[in-house]
Nucleic acid binder design. Structure first.
Lengths: 199, 199
DNA sequence: CAGTTACCTTACTTGAAGTAGGTTACTACC
DNA sequence: GGTAGTAACCTACTTCAAGTAAGGTAACTG
């Protein structure tokens, strides 16, 4: 039999294998709870190999993230290419994004927000903050807007919270933007989409 | 002189002091790079005291987060209370949020997204993903929309990315929502705010 | 089939989280 | 004012995971 049973593998192949397994372990246990010994054992190789190829635990994580990053970029760029107008470009891009995260749940969860805290009390606590803000907004909306479904209101609230979160970080890079600017600015972008449409 | 030079402090006071210092250390060095020994030394107390009061490193982080959380809730609830209509309620809430993060930069950075990875290559990498998406959207917008400023476009792009990020997590809790639903849904909320307003 | 390279290992060091058990200063009551 | 009790505090340890030094072995190459 010519069963190629070699334990020794070429570097590139071993690297791919390591990244795949690491991605799974990071996603499942969270970054800090995942140990290099465990990953090494799952790969079927000893720990120094991981360090040989990725230098550090974070280097390994980095490789996992880069893989997802590249895949996401390819998906969305392709989707958007050749769209006839702004609206359809936006739609295609959004669709590609949501399709991607649907197909790469594991990989995505490695890099979605909490990172090292998935499943830990601290992560729950941070999430609780967003939930509190979301609830507040949802309550406001169901007070003021009658004709909308629960789901619609809920999603809109998530939407606002996410957008604000992000814009907050953006503001840190733009010192010239005051809180008033930020609030007014958010309104400009947001309101026409959220306001009653029959006016 | 009646300089009360007591090193011993009542528990409540010491706890507050510990939280304040821990918040600073976590924000500056990042969660995982911060050591309990260092925090203890800065407080002027030995490590077991931290464990006596907060049980674990994460417990201490939790206390920091809870403090910010409560402050944020109070601010926004107060701001929104008694608003005459939806638009002004939204505006007041947004303003309160942005004012808050302006005033609590340190505390906010403890809980804003990366958490344990602030300043590390992995955090940069994750941020790079968002930047890549933001750039893509901004490029689209400056192609299709003529009359808007760079800043306006940039902020709108950040906005979209943040909203999508958040909505993606929301989708994980709602299995009945397909990618198509998500994309269409995002469009519904978003488009009227982003579309040319003179139509 | 000998030499070289590249894959791989065992066995260590280092550093930080968390703990066991003892000590000191404030307080309340005689 | 002394003394018992307790709340605040400490030193010195264990444990566990990241990262490393130094060397072994399979596979290719002339």
């Amino acid at each position: 039999m010519t069963v190629i049973k070699r334990k020794r593998m070429p570097r590139a192949e071993r690297e791919r294998q390591m990244i795949d397994i690491a991605e799974g372990v990071f996603a499942e246990r969270g970054y800090s709870a995942a140990s290099m010994d465990d990953i090494a054992e799952l790969v079927g190789v000893s720990k120094p190999m991981l360090y040989e190829y990725f230098n550090s635990k974070e280097g390994l994580l980095l490789a996992c993230i880069r893989q997802s990053r590249t895949a996401l970029r390819l998906s969305t760029e392709q989707a958007v290419a050749g769209a006839p107008d702004a609206e359809s470009a936006l739609y295609r891009g959004l669709l590609a994004f949501f399709v991607f995260i649907g197909e790469h749940r594991q990989g995505w969860s490695v890099l979605r927000q909490e990172l090292s805290f998935i499943g830990t009390p601290a992560a729950e606590e941070v999430e609780e903050i967003r939930r509190q803000q979301t609830d507040l907004i949802a309550a406001l909306m169901s007070t003021y807007f009658d004709g909308r479904s629960e789901l619609q209101i809920e999603a809109s609230a998530e939407f606002v919270v996410g957008a604000c979160d992000r814009l907050a970080i953006w503001c840190e890079r733009h010192d010239e933007v005051t809180p008033e600017d930020a609030a007014r600015y958010t309104m400009d972008v947001l309101w026409r989409g959220l306001a009653p449409h029959d006016s």
